[in-house]
Amino acid sequence: MATLEVRSLTKWYGPVLGIEGVSFALERGEIFGYLGPNGAGKTTTIRCIMGLIRPGGGEVLALGEPVVSGRATRHQRMGYLPGEFRLWPGVRAGRSLRVLASLGGGDGARARRLQLAERLELDLDRPVGQLSKGNRQKVAVIYAFQHQPELLILDEPTNGLDPLVRQTVLDLIREAAQQGATVLLSSHDLSEVGAVCGRAAILRAGHLVEMGPISKLVQRGEHRLKVWFLDGALEPPVPLGRLPGVRVIEQQPGLLHLAYPGACDAVLRWVAQFPVDRIATPQTSLEEAFIQYYKTAPPPAAAAGAEPAPKGNP
């Protein structure tokens, strides 16, 4: 049984589309990346999952129970980190966290809270209004993790954190998953999604345009080829007309850096005509793949429903 299942979720804000036909399922212990630019519908999806807004269609099953808007479905066992985390400015961070933890029992949350504060080097005795942006984000991380939830919904969890703390947060996410928690990680930082997630989905203008293992998503983008020619060799002009989709990233005396889609056969055959010193195939990053999806993905109307969500994909 999936820990989190989203089925054909749709939400319109009056005439404006939030999301349409979004479906995916997360298994126990999985870290799932949820990618998309601003306004793509990530936060709308997350708020529907948390029952904070009422979807226009579709349904969400959290920990096996259908989510009903405003009914706090399974919230006792869920951790949530909103994209914009705001607390009562005059109240001490520790007290705010204690109050929120106690909405839902909060048994054992104190010990975990103190442990997390120590690990993130955060003083919980200071009023939230006096904390820096980064420290407020640490409070947000503690808020999401303090009651050891089984399902974590994290919207930009490392926003505003320095690289060291960011690593600690990513470690926390990995540890939670190792202990069996399921994590939905919405992020703009593709490197962190690539670092911790097994699978990811890409959202564009409210529609899911791609979903699958990170390695597969990366492969579906452009590939790279760097060719160093032997000294004194002629710099061959690239016959772009004969190599569809190929583009030149960099061309210097003795060096050619190409990007190509799909199979490398045609490119290699052309390169083999020249005296080659060595070649390299730089790894395409998730970020590059992401940009490619946005350049090449079909318009949202065509993409809607074109990507049936694979269920139980590890």
Partner: peptide, 16 residues
């Protein structure tokens, strides 16, 4: 408006 209602409702408390 403060943004704290989102936190309250994301815990074990229904809107009602």
């Amino acid at each position: 408006q403060k943004g704290t209602m989102e936190l309250i409702l994301s815990r074990s408390a229904t809107k009602t």
